[in-house]
Design a binder for these strands. Sequence first.
DNA 1: AAGTTATATTATCTTATTCTAATATTGTCA
DNA 2: TGACAATATTAGAATAAGATAATATAACTT
Lengths: 120, 120
Amino acid sequence: MDTFPAEKIQAASSGLRAIAHELRLAILCHLSGGPLTVSELLARTGANQSNLSQHLAKMRMLGVLDCERRGQQVTYRLANPAFAQIAEALKAIYCASDTEQNSGDPAACPNPSPTQRSTP
Amino acid sequence: MDTFPAEKIQAASSGLRAIAHELRLAILCHLSGGPLTVSELLARTGANQSNLSQHLAKMRMLGVLDCERRGQQVTYRLANPAFAQIAEALKAIYCASDTEQNSGDPAACPNPSPTQRSTP
DNA sequence: AAGTTATATTATCTTATTCTAATATTGTCA
DNA sequence: TGACAATATTAGAATAAGATAATATAACTT
């Protein structure tokens, strides 16, 4: 996959920023099952009202969520169902059925590593 | 999709944070086509060497990339092929074939919006 | 060993995120 | 109209992320 036009990268990274936060990802996951009102999200996430509202606003402004008011309740939904696929991919990565994920040292790498010659 | 265990959300959001940046997303896209050396990434992204290295380090520490040194070159690759799916999903969202994406005001919403009664 | 290439690390400054608390809007109902 | 419920907004302080420049390390070459 190299065909991601450079001009779109900026927009896409904004979209990612919109969900790259513990609470906002939780919101995404909950909304992947269908629209929910703020109260429902409040109950499911256990978040602080003001804080939740701010995060919802950010997700909306960054184009991840749409919302609609009905009386005094506001319902939020994914602006694009493909956002749920991102949650799916994450689940595949972080909820692998195996016992453990990656046994290696996360920081292990380049300079510290032992020499490996390309032409032994 | 509500079956994303709460304990995993934190790890997953770290993974997202690792790619929620213009340059890091570009790196992900380039590596989706297969492993590349730092020099190759340097050429393709046009980034500053020090900066690129720091972003690669962050992606590695957050578990998105693996790397391996061969002589004086270091090759980076996706730690999990499923990360490429995220790039695919983003492409679906942000590179829709239609002329334009979402024509609505991104900020339009709740309080500012006109009344809609639930029982008209 | 000295020079050179490839890459990583550190330091610092600037800017952006995030949380909390307080307050404001909007809509409903008695 | 006045109280209440649902949600949004603002302001401020604390923390994190980012860019740049300078320097360090590691491996190769002569």
